[in-house]
């Protein structure tokens, strides 16, 4: 009986979290566009523009190309969205620890960081499947590029996650190694020595550069490359399907940035200002939003407007060689710190 009740409560919370995540991700996208416009000396669209975009895309006709494999073509956007929404369930959306120590992701305890890394790959994988299923040479080229991209950036990402998880186990407090909860509640910056801090900073830098590529943003948007292959993967998509991809991308952005915040800066502001009660919660929530937005601005908006698109060969090399090497060095420093 208790288990059933708990399941119902979790379902309810889950639905709420999905709603909040959908809304928040689109708002953040609005901010992204506004800030990008300001950087480019423009006014930019109103903050509600992403909502209008989605609204409009959902009204439009869903065109399926003649040569497309229609079930895969139509299924891919839906699965991409489902993948990102499930991801949201595993990542803390909001301040954790401090006053609200009890608050945790909806599905906390049902999966760990390894699962999160897998889930992160799903939207990209689905886009690649959708691209291959489109039957257009442009989409095929885009899908090939997406596969190459994933193979490239997953490698340093895995190194970063493994290093963090290993270090958490090494704290020897009996923490589960890949548990997000453990990582969030024990910020590593305070636990390691000077070498470890340098190592962590390196890992954070690598993770920072993985963000735009994981989210397929310029300069790492070779799979979509509007001017080269006309949108690539999404070249053939329209209407609802395109809208689903749009939302999936926004939600994934939110989830990935929250993950970055949770892994590297899981701090709250209320203890510092000595505020308590509900005020502390509101303050922490705002601070968390601020952290996400700052990361969004630096890792996505500024890089997006300040660089030219890289070619796929250079891009793949960048992740497989220098960034992987940096990640390995960072892990080694973390290791050396424990000696």
């Amino acid at each position: 009986m208790n288990e059933a009740l708990e399941a119902v409560i979790r379902l309810g919370i889950g639905a709420g979290v999905i709603m909040i995540a959908l809304w928040l991700s689109l708002v953040l996208k609005g901010f992204d566009r506004k800030f990008a416009a300001w950087l480019q000396a423009r006014y930019g669209p109103p903050l509600r523009q992403p909502f209008w975009d989605v609204f409009k895309l959902f009204q439009k006709e869903n065109v399926v190309p003649e040569r497309a494999v229609s079930w895969a073509f139509n299924g891919a956007p839906l699965m991409a969205l489902v993948g990102s929404l499930v991801l949201v369930m595993f990542i803390p959306l909001g301040p954790v620890g401090g006053v609200v120590a009890g608050w945790m992701p909806v599905l906390e305890g049902y999966g760990d960081l390894i699962l999160v890394v897998y889930l992160l790959a799903i939207p990209g994988l689905m886009m690649a499947i959708g691209g291959f299923a489109s039957g257009s040479p442009l989409a095929t080229v885009g899908a090939q590029r997406e596969m190459v991209m994933m193979m490239s950036y997953e490698f340093p990402l895995a190194i970063v996650v493994l290093a963090l998880a290993w270090r958490i186990t090494n704290l020897s407090r009996g923490l589960e190694s890949f548990s997000l909860k453990a990582i969030v509640e024990n910020p590593l910056w305070g636990e390691v020595g000077i070498l470890g801090i340098v190592g962590l900073a390196l890992l954070f830098g690598v993770f920072f550069l993985i963000i735009p590529s994981e989210l397929s943003k310029i300069p790492f948007d070779a799979p979509e490359a509007e001017t080269e292959i006309g949108g690539g993967i999404i070249a053939e998509y329209s209407g609802t399907n395109l809208g689903l991809f749009y939302i999936a991308d926004a939600v994934k952005t939110l989830a990935f940035l929250s993950l970055a915040v949770a892994l590297f800066v899981p701090y709250n502001i209320s203890p510092l200002l000595n505020v308590g009660g509900i005020g502390a919660y509101v303050l922490d929530l705002l601070f968390w939003l601020f952290k996400v937005e700052v990361l969004y601005f630096l890792a996505v908006t500024v890089i997006r407007v300040g660089a030219a698109r890289l070619k796929i060969d250079k891009l793949s090399w960048l992740y497989l060689v220098p960034l992987s090497a940096l990640a390995v060095v960072g892990s080694l420093l973390l290791y050396l710190d424990t000696l």
Binding site: W38, L39, A41, Y43, V302, V305
Partner: peptide, 12 residues
């Protein structure tokens, strides 16, 4: 240059 533009008025 972009950061300079960020803190100045839009040209539009």
């Amino acid at each position: 240059e972009l950061l300079k533009q960020f803190f100045s008025d839009p040209a539009t």
